[in-house]
Design a protein around this nucleic acid. Structure first.
Lengths: 229, 229, 229, 229
DNA sequence: GATGAATGAGGCTTCATTCAT
DNA sequence: AATGAATGAAGCCTCATTCAT
């Protein structure tokens, strides 16, 4: 009834169009208001979680009236989607700007990429935890969309790097699966960190890096040892 | 406000006492009724998640009246706790009965332990996913309790095995952290499974095993290669 | 989800079961509470109409909390249905008790039946008007149910009487259609009453009676003239 | 509160002036825009009813912005009024153009008039039903206006014809009441048609015609029988 | 004159929990 | 000990209408 989830047939748009969520017509306004919503909502989500956060609280947090809020979303589920989308964007943007071109060795690139990812993940523990735990509450269409987004961004970057390494040093593994696993592994601390001493953040990161680079095989490790401090 | 969270001062009891949750006095009855609750509730939780499941649905699912239900729990949160406790128990029980004594080599023990764990995890995808994503909604005291339980059971088993290996082949890593990471890694598929082809379950498991055993270092790998098919 | 509209397969129950509307288990209680709801709601409906009456007003009018109200209905639509059902019951009960057995001539029976119906209709103008104008807002299943009810009660009684007459004096018309038309005609005043002077109620009734009995044909009229004052 | 209900004191204008509804000054524009509104709105009303149709839907359906819409009406109620007015106009226009002058006998005129009315009514079932059921939601002043309109148009035409007949063949009845009843009777099918087999439209019409012409008395019937097929 | 974003009260419904029976 | 009816606050969402641009 409320035209959401209409996936755009326009082949240049691969993801769900924000305009299908909002009843507004001004696309620029939609974008800016939805950002305002995300910024208001995600802080609440991080502390309380999705379900315990009420739509009224969200409206307050982003300084909107209920009516205005619903002008730019069509249901509470949309907020969850918008937060996911935003998260994947900022994480992707962060990882993308890591100037990996500076490094010649693809292994060195991967090392620094993982380090960057670990850094980001530890700077955004709560957000990572939120995303990991509430993704399942996305509606079907949104879920598909978000998973596709993830695969094309973060996981995609891992995959590229693995492919690059594989050209020089063969990695005996399915690179797509490996990319997914690496992206998952890196989120260990926000997800399970509580079982680990808070102080040992560096130890954990080291442990993950070691596991990964040893795990990629003897030849990769030899190369990697040059760069692992 | 309500009588929950009374941590038992009895130093021999390390976990929260069920009797502090129930207003009943017959401990056997409490146990059996709470099991009934868990069995009714967890199926709902797996499909709908914790918050979207209502206490009334739970009562129906476990064939209890509201009154009876509240006789054995003191709030909905208790159900979440009971399900967690139950999960850790069955997972621990499963892993415990893996007859690892049969194997002489500690590395072989670990291999088979991880395989068993992967098997369990894949047999209980939804449950694993539920536990991983809703743990954060446990109340503080319950959370502490559950994390302690986890550390003493699954993670504990990993730790023991690593210690055993370490006696023979030194592992350069904090074994506690490593144990946590391994336990986390094994849950990859249920958590991220959707991004991976259903058929490639074996590929994924293989990938994880390889990553781990290469990751434990050259010496462990050499030993492991004898047993990895 | 909320099991309403489950038409009972039990062949003795032809109409929608009240228990499918309520989440209560005590059938006697359901009946009495639903009556309480109908009595609270219908007065509001008569003055304000269905949509302008809020569910909160209904709860107040029948001295129930919101929660209690929804224990005995599952949506506002149910109230509309209950009011319809109640209306058809009381109208049927009234018409049924008209002791038409006293009259020998079937034509006289019809005369007195119509008179009774006109009387009832004029005593319950607002109610008749409400029912006639809001029936269309019944949900599909409820609509079917209510129309069936009507056909079996009021219209059914008209039909029986026409059949009885027809045995003695042939009526050249489809008796089912005629029965429907008569039932409709009788509601003229509540429906259009506003266009007609209040005082002329008797004139209108006379006019309708005349129209009908002349309308049934010369032979019926001759018989009828004996009884029409 | 808002500028509606200003009844015009100008004694030559008997109906509510459209300009009192609109804030525009160009009367031609008002007329054309209000027609646009009526045409957009009435389709929605026919399917959903008055209250369930939102003013936003109306704006969309008639391709107007909210602002423009409210330029030509001053509240949602106005739309209901405009639709009523429009309905009475088109029905009156249709009936007026029935070239009854062709017939010499006033009884034949009435026969053909009723047939035309039945035809119109069956062509516009949903509209008739809508008007009949939602008139009660007109605001007081509008209601008075609409009822006066009806009396002067459709009912008026019936009345004229009855008077004409009455000159030749006395009808023993209050002709005003009779006119109202006839106009009401003719709407039987849209209002109660659902209780009657869909196919039997012709039977129903026949039944109504018979009822009416027999109902007007023996002498009228004799005359009528010449023309009733 | 025209737009459509903004308002915020109020719509219907559900909920965890209690307590009279 | 057991029942399930009762509570009423709070849930999400929509609405007719206004007014800054």
């Amino acid at each position: 009834m409320r035209g959401k989830h209409k996936t755009d047939n326009n082949e240049h748009k691969q993801f769900i169009d924000n305009r299908s969520i909002s009843s507004s017509k001004d696309e620029g306004l939609i974008e800016s208001k939805q950002l305002q919503i995300v910024e208001g909502a995600y802080k609440l989500f991080l502390t309380k979680g999705f379900h315990p956060t009420s739509i009224r609280e969200i409206a307050e947090a982003c300084n909107m009236s209920m009516g205005q809020l619903y002008h730019y979303i069509s249901s509470k589920d949309d907020v969850l989607y918008l937060v996911h989308k935003h998260f994947h964007k900022i994480m992707y943007d962060f990882l993308k700007t890591q100037k990996l071109e500076e490094y010649v060795s693809p292994v060195e690139k991967l090392i620094n990429f993982i380090k960057a990812n670990l850094y980001f993940v530890n700077q955004n523990k709560k957000l990572i935890q939120f995303i990991s735990t509430e993704t399942k509450y996305l509606q079907k269409d949104y879920l598909k969309d978000v998973l596709a987004m993830e695969k094309e961004s973060t996981i995609g970057l891992y995959h590229q790097l693995l492919v690059e390494i594989n050209k020089e040093i063969p990695i005996i593994a399915d690179l797509e699966i490996l990319a997914s696993i690496l992206a998952y592994l890196v989120a260990f601390l926000p997800m399970k960190g509580w079982t680990v001493n808070e102080d040992s953040l560096d130890d954990v990161n080291r442990c993950i890096l070691d596991l990964v680079f040893r795990g990629l095989g003897q030849s990769v490790l030899q190369e990697a040892e040059k760069f692992l401090i």
